[in-house]
Write a protein that binds this DNA or RNA. Structure first.
Lengths: 338, 338
DNA sequence: TTGTACGCGTTATCAT
DNA sequence: ATGATAACGCGTACAA
């Protein structure tokens, strides 16, 4: 920061008024005469004065920024969701500090600690896939710092959350597969610790049960969120003696991997293998055949999460009931299903 | 922020030492006895004391955060680049405040103003496509706040920049198209104001000139960064009486649009139309045929930009020479070219 | 080795 | 309608 930055004191000295008058005038305090307000503002404009937010924040006891903690920015869903948060934060004059955990629990803890120290006004968090210990979240709540989970949540913590209906839409997807005549339906999911993956698994299970399909553990796959693991798992699944004739994948990225593997093995989509992904990423509609997928309201999820967070921030802290907001997602059927 | 937050004063009172001693002890000041250092740290640990970064920042005259201003987070390149910046910032204990301009010049100005007021330690910026006025950048420099441009830069401002060799790699791409027998080669670029698009256009032009190809203005397309504009432009280009038999696209996203249009019009890739994109997005290798593209060192670009920024931040401000770092990108040839 | 006193830039409280 | 003063929480020059 340059030393020649204009501050309240400078304006006050020049106009021969007190600093408090300047401070108030700039913020349109009603008890300052219109005349001085005008004088102050004009000079401030001329000198290109900008209030020092750090000093303001020290007074406020917290920063005019919220912390957003996500697994990876390059996951399409998070980039979208963050845009939704920005829309809200911008209007209230808040900045967004974004941190990626890269699916590491340790990194997540360190980030939370760091952001607490930074005195951000609140957290919006989507868990890393490796997170199994929740003390850092408890610490946030313990310090009465507002916290909202979105997408990947943590049931053990009593706070607001914004999620989609993972169970329902997975169920719907599997029912479509059943209705289109598929007999051996698999679920290609994320790590066992990931809530939303398990919710989708439950939807899958429920759909099978409702139609009296047997549950085959060979058809339930858990894999890490990296291309290599997914590739190995895909190889194993599609080389089974009785390979599946339909797969619900946890993400479009996983579905991409399954496309790859299916092509390698000469398995035709959708005649021999139906495929449904999750996220409706931009390129899904370009694949041949185009990928059927679940369109998630990522932007709305981010926006809603931010709105709820600011409710928490602005509400008196003593009294509030945690709410869970469930947004609907949409099954988009394209060429990869019958 | 909770009122019962532990501060230096509390620790000092409990241990009957002065606040400064606590302050110094916590930061391992050598002139504090090992014994008291130990005592202080133990108690701080017990009470789960966390230094108030806002107060520290007020002292330091700037925040322990840098501002990153990009057009859109959902552009793959920026998500990648930000990961690179994070790696650097994390080690130095800095946060990253990310703002999207959504390709709006007004938004960019507002963001810069806001971040200046927040007293961030420095800026890393990639211009919006609509930016034609550079006063906000001049203001940053005027206030001696460190600034590094990356990817999309601004030549009028004397500061550091990290870019790729847009000219060279575009030239190389077009030469490949020429060598593979293409005769009517088009460039499908971004808005006229976008530096890097124009650089690539120059590379395109140079390659054509070197091989004594005529320059046909019908084959030089400028379009906005939204799917609709791109779609219209693609339609126009591919319906020309003499349609191109090869296209260098500014981005993979544009290339996707060209795939779509080519399929609609029944134009075969690559036999009737060769296609090269930019960015090497994950799905490019999955298309049929797979998209040839330019792989950009996005992560390295972000990392380098951050490294240079922190050099500026830590160096005495009086003396430094602006540097321009040019990173090499790689032509990746796949099925969409002959 | 430790303590005192002041400053960082702003806002809130209490006067006037 | 305006001013003086303290406070926000920490770091540091100067003392001791």
């Amino acid at each position: 920061m340059n030393d020649r930055t204009i501050k309240l004191k400078d304006i006050a000295r020049i106009l021969s008024v007190s600093e408090s008058t300047v401070s108030r005038a700039l913020r349109d305090h009603p008890r300052i005469s219109l005349a001085t307000r005008k004088r102050v503002k004009t000079l401030a404009e001329q000198l290109d004065y900008m209030p020092n937010q750090v000093a303001r924040n020290l007074q406020n006891r917290h920063m005019n920024a919220i912390g957003v903690v996500v697994p990876k920015l390059s996951y399409y869903l998070y980039a979208q969701a963050i845009s939704g948060m920005e829309e809200v934060a911008e209007q209230l004059g808040y900045n967004i500090i974004i941190c990626q955990t890269n699916e590491s629990a340790e990194r997540e803890q360190a980030i939370v600690q760091e952001l607490l120290s930074t005195r951000i006004a609140g957290f919006i968090i989507s868990l890393s896939s490796a997170t199994v210990n929740f003390e850092h979240f408890a610490k946030i709540k313990g310090r009465k710092v507002p916290l909202v989970f979105f997408n990947r949540e943590c049931e053990d913590i009593h706070t607001d959350r914004v999620i989609i209906d993972n169970f329902g839409v997975a169920q719907k997807a599997v029912e479509h597969l059943i209705n289109s005549g598929c007999k051996r339906i698999a679920y290609f999911g994320g790590p066992m610790e990931v809530q939303i993956s398990n919710r989708r698994l439950e939807g899958y299970t429920a759909a099978l049960a409702a139609h009296h399909f047997p549950l085959n553990s060979d058809y339930i796959v858990h894999t890490e969120f990296n291309p290599e693991s997914a590739y190995q798992a895909a190889d194993h699944l599609l080389r089974l003696p009785q390979p599946p004739d339909a797969i619900l994948a946890f993400s479009d990225q996983f579905a991409y991997t399954l496309y790859r593997k299916a092509r390698e093995l000469g398995i035709a989509i959708p005649s021999e293998l139906s495929l449904i992904g999750f996220n409706n990423e931009p390129a899904t509609s370009l694949l041949l055949p185009a990928l059927s997928t679940v369109d998630q309201p990522a932007y709305a999820m981010g926006k809603t999460a931010a709105e709820i967070l600011f409710q928490q921030i602005q509400r008196p802290k003593d009294y509030y009931r945690a709410q869970t907001k469930i947004l609907q997602s949409q099954l988009v059927l394209r060429g990869s299903t019958l």
